[in-house]
């Protein structure tokens, strides 16, 4: 995909995200919209090797959504990638749906492991990266954490483990949108300089603009190729609620569904951002 198509895809995904959360009547729009460009880069920018028709082939790259509450973003991506019909997105959070409020790996193809309890994804990813290396498989494990999630102590147990075991087939991306349920991360319990923290734990760590899709594609692909003995961390600076004017940088849109009127406004905001319209 060229850069314009990637931007268009991300915008389409955002429309799916707000539509399905509105239809569900609950969910987490803020953190789904902040990570949409990152997921777009991974799945549609040619970074990850995967096959929606053969979701469990051994050599595939793995993606683990540590911040499981961004499930709508992952579902929108998996549907567009062909793992299941896009129409199913509108069943989100409903009784009988495969699309649980947080991802369930026993229901949805393309979901590698069930998540939703924060702080566990990095450990699971590290174990998976160690397992793939043990098998002699060249695949890479990508995981997406929230910045508030980094308040969980287990994240740092995993950071120590991954560096100790030189898991250079592991790429962690931190969605640094600077907001969490109770307020700005800096006010609730400041995670501080996450790049410096990962670096001092022995990771190859860098800051990146989490909405610059071409830059994300280049950096993530380079990290995947770099087997220099260190795990990779990207502190992706993002805007919570990105793309929807009234949700951007608003704590209140962490876990609330738009009503019908708000949905119209959100879709109109996103239409205005569409590269086709620009």
């Amino acid at each position: 995909m060229d850069n314009e198509m990637l931007a268009e895809t991300a915008n389409d995904l955002r429309r799916d995200i707000v539509r399905m959360i509105a239809e569900a009547g609950s969910g987490h729009p803020g953190g789904s919209l902040s990570c949409t460009d990152i997921l777009t880069a991974l799945y549609f920018g040619g970074v990850m090797d995967y096959d929606a028709q053969n979701p469990t082939y051994e050599e595939r790259d793995r993606f683990i959504l540590a911040k499981g509450h961004a499930a709508p973003a992952l579902y929108a991506v998996l549907a567009r990638a062909g793992y299941f019909p896009r129409a199913e997105l509108m069943t989100l959070r409903k009784l009988g749906s495969r699309l649980q409020g947080h991802p369930d790996c026993n229901l949805v193809p393309g979901v590698e492991v069930s998540t939703g309890s924060l702080g566990q994804g990095l450990s699971i990813s590290a174990g998976m990266a160690a397992g793939l290396a043990l098998n002699g498989t060249d695949a890479c494990v990508f995981t997406l954490l929230g910045d508030g999630e980094c308040q969980e102590g287990q994240v740092w147990e995993a950071a120590m483990f991954a560096a100790h075991h030189k898991l250079d087939n592991l790429v962690a991306i931190i969605d640094r949108n600077e907001l969490q349920i109770d307020g700005p991360t800096a006010e609730v319990c400041d995670p501080g300089d996450l790049r410096a923290k990962f670096e001092v734990f022995g990771w190859d760590a860098r800051d990146i603009d989490g909405h610059d899709i071409p830059a994300l594609v280049d950096a993530l692909a380079a990290a995947k190729a770099d087997r220099g003995g260190k795990p990779h961390a990207f502190i992706a600076h993002t805007i919570k609620g990105k793309g929807v004017s009234f949700m951007e940088n608003q704590v209140g849109w962490h876990g609330k569904a738009p009503n019908a009127e708000q949905l119209e406004q959100a879709l109109s905001d996103l239409a205005a951002l569409d590269p086709k319209e620009a």
């Binding site: 450990s123 998976m128 043990l134 287990q154 483990f161």
Partner: peptide, 27 residues
């Protein structure tokens, strides 16, 4: 190399085992 010592970190131990099992091992 099939024994992974996580140090004193039991939460990480369980989820590292989870990841290892997802890569085809009995953990």
């Amino acid at each position: 190399k099939r024994l992974f010592d996580c140090g004193i970190a039991e939460q990480n131990m369980i989820d590292v085992a989870a990841g290892l099992s997802l890569a085809g091992n009995i953990a």
